[in-house]
């Protein structure tokens, strides 16, 4: 870190000197002139051709005003105060830091640029796209949606279900048994069953939003983070069991010994079982994985 700051300071000094030099001859923004000083001058001409003291014209013939005291882009920036000034300084700084990083980096450059977009990438993407569209067309030709009975507010149908992707939400609506009668409230529930079930959506969705802020670090593979993978397995299984909860009437009708109490119990126990198994499996895989990683690491860089 110390080294970096030092180089930064050196750099700053060097750059300021360079900029000062540039400003005396061209009077332009230093960032652009570094990369394309041949192209970008205020007269649309290479700056060395103009020669010293560049015969100031007073008849206004030049397209842009000659070098007078009109402020350059950079100077104008520096004069502004407050937040914009701060922003500008931050960008200057981060650009400098980027450059330092780039100089220090030992990136391996490609020897080939990569697959060309045409035809390789295009053919691959077109084949994936047309396959997928073909599957959709095939399925919709073979399994068209049925024409249901028209809406009738006076008769409630025996089975009311949303599309399958909302089953989880519909399943949550059937968790009244979780709305416990609390002794603290004198045998009352916190809210009515309906309100409780609707509010139960909240924590689930909030958990989804919080995931990246709870699980940090550079681990990416499931083996590297058994706990969070187990949490994921818990979530996936829970979404399935909640979906099954939505059709518990149908299941109870089909399966003889099935009771809705048993199902409610299972739908929260199964995720825990699944998560435990996933955790155990990943934890035991992790040893082998770390061993492999270490072996490869030491083969590449033997310890001194």
């Amino acid at each position: 870190m110390n080294e970096n700051t030092n180089t930064n300071d050196d750099r700053t000094a060097a750059e300021t000197a360079e900029e000062a030099e540039l400003r005396t001859d061209g009077g332009e923004a230093s960032e652009t002139s570094r990369s394309s000083s041949e192209l970008r001058t205020d007269g649309g001409e290479p700056s060395d051709e103009r020669g010293p003291s560049s015969e100031l014209r007073t008849d206004g013939g030049a397209i842009t005003p000659a070098d007078d005291d009109s402020p350059s882009f950079r100077e104008r920036k520096e004069r502004t105060d407050g937040l914009s000034r701060l922003t500008y300084e931050y960008f200057e700084r981060s650009r400098r830091e980027d450059q330092v990083l780039r100089d220090d980096s030992d990136y391996v450059e490609r020897d080939v640029l990569g697959f060309p977009a045409w035809p390789h990438e295009m053919i691959r993407n077109l084949s994936i796209t047309s396959f997928f569209v073909g599957v959709i067309l095939f399925v919709s030709a073979t399994m068209p949606p049925p024409l249901e009975a028209p809406a009738n507010p006076t008769s409630t149908p025996a089975v009311i279900l949303p599309d399958w992707y909302l089953y989880w939400s519909f399943g949550i609506l059937k968790t009244q048994a979780l709305n416990l009668e609390l002794a603290v409230l004198g045998g009352q529930t916190i809210a009515t069953d309906r309100t409780f079930a609707v509010l139960l959506h909240g924590p689930i969705i909030v958990m989804l939003f919080l995931v990246p802020f709870l699980n940090k670090g550079s681990a990416r593979r499931p083996v590297e983070q058994p706990f969070w993978s187990a949490v994921g397995v818990f979530g996936v299984i829970l979404s399935f069991t909640l979906s099954l909860l939505a059709i518990k009437n149908l299941m109870a009708a089909r399966i003889p010994i099935w009771t809705s109490h048993m199902q409610l119990w299972l739908s929260f126990v199964l995720p825990f079982i699944g998560a435990t198994i996933a955790y155990a499996v990943l934890k035991s895989m992790r040893e082998g994985y770390m061993y492999d990683l270490n072996r490869r690491y030491y083969r590449l860089r033997p310890p001194r």
Binding site: A149, P150, A151, P153, P157, I160, P162
Partner: peptide, 11 residues
Amino acid sequence: WNQLAFWAAQI
């Protein structure tokens, strides 16, 4: 606006 749609709206 068939039966399922109506009762889904109700829910």
